[in-house]
Design a protein around this nucleic acid. Structure first.
Lengths: 210, 210
DNA sequence: CAAAGTTTGTTTGACTATTCACAAAAAATT
DNA sequence: AATTTTTTGTGAATAGTCAAACAAACTTTG
């Protein structure tokens, strides 16, 4: 299959959310132009993104919101429930445990890991915290498919190495470091400082350009 | 000045972090090849990114870690302290208040806002929570330059509109919606579900391709 | 039901970003 | 001090992404 760009996939996610909102508002049909307008992009972009996966619209009319949402769910693999492990029960980790958006999209946190002996064997949000040392058993038992890394930068690579050994193939990394993984494993990064620094750059440039 | 791409800016952020780590380890010189290797990119990319802003290296030797870090700090506008407001003191918001990485990079949270009367006038992390209704006074008093939006999707646009009125020109948006702003205002999005969905897509594709 | 109006899907062209490749410059070696 | 090695900085080539534009297909209107 042709390689689809990351930007296309992340736009599909935004279309998915747009459609969810429209469906809530009982909107039944939507044009590429409206989807584009809502998301500050061009309608050609919307149609192009969708065209990689099929023809879901009707000329002269647009797209059926429910049908298109369903199609995108299929494309993104949101028709199933994903078992997720969270590593690092600190500030960020705890916030993510309660983050409703994840559950809504079918990402269920099934296991918590930490290396702090004070935290191990305690519970957060109804979930027991396990020692990262014995993660493989739990990963297998809970059929973990995705791991969220919310540990300090220093420990991130080691944690990922351990979980790759246990067979985890997908990581969402909140630690501000680049993680190395084998080519059949994927890492997506969520680095909040990078975005703040981009804002800093923008504000600095604008000041200069006065 | 020539428009520099977002990807270049975000890579500069990662170089900055790489250099910080090397400096901690008392490394004095580094080549574009080493920076590239650490971050899984090509050395040409590293040199190209830097070349937009000047020549910071020495042929045959590489870059002085401290000097280059300093230059990148200047480019990104990290030589000053940025006054930040956080809107929405929920799970995510509270985690961000304690997120050390922000403070380390000079982003200081100076004001908290919420619309929940139960939260208003209480304190979190030594900061008083204000009603978003009266934000303009506080924004002016605390010289807020950047706002972090951690409110539910439903309220995000209204909150941003209010703050744009108060003169805030830069937003880090955690709400899973596209925000509309005037052209002199910048929004960067931090959407954790989008990245998870990208992982879901990847895992789904790989299963199909068995 | 014919004509006018919409909107999709896709081809083509424009633009942007990345990588290649190499001369120039400096360091290290003999 | 001359030669070899290393590494930068950058112009040229390649690859990738996005936007414009339009025929084809469908809807709506008169």
């Amino acid at each position: 299959m042709k390689k689809i760009s990351d930007s296309t996939i992340s736009r599909l996610s935004t279309y998915y959310r747009t459609l969810s909102r429209l469906i809530e508002q009982n909107v039944e049909t939507v044009s590429s132009d409206e989807i584009a307008e809502i998301n500050n992009i061009t309608s050609a972009q919307v149609r192009k993104d969708l065209s990689f996966f099929g023809s879901f619209g009707k000329r002269g009319l647009g797209y059926n919101t429910k049908d298109l949402r369903e199609e995108i769910a299929k494309i993104l693999g949101l028709k199933k429930q994903w078992n997720v492990a969270l590593v690092g029960v600190g500030n960020i980790g705890r916030a993510l445990i309660d983050y409703a958006e994840f559950k809504k999209q079918g990402f269920i946190i099934k296991a918590l890991f930490d290396n702090d002996p004070k935290k191990v064997n305690t519970e957060v949000g109804g979930l027991k915290i396990y020692d990262i040392e014995n993660s493989c058993n739990i990963v297998k038992k809970e059929k973990i498919e995705i791991a969220i890394i919310a540990v300090p930068a220093k420990h991130a690579q080691a944690v990922v190495d351990t979980l790759v050994q246990c067979g985890v193939k997908a990581f969402l990394n909140f630690a501000p470091v680049t993680i190395k993984v084998p080519s059949d494993v994927i890492v997506k990064n969520e680095n909040m400082s990078i975005e703040l620094e981009a804002l800093s750059y923008f504000l600095t440039q604008n000041k200069k350009g006065d």
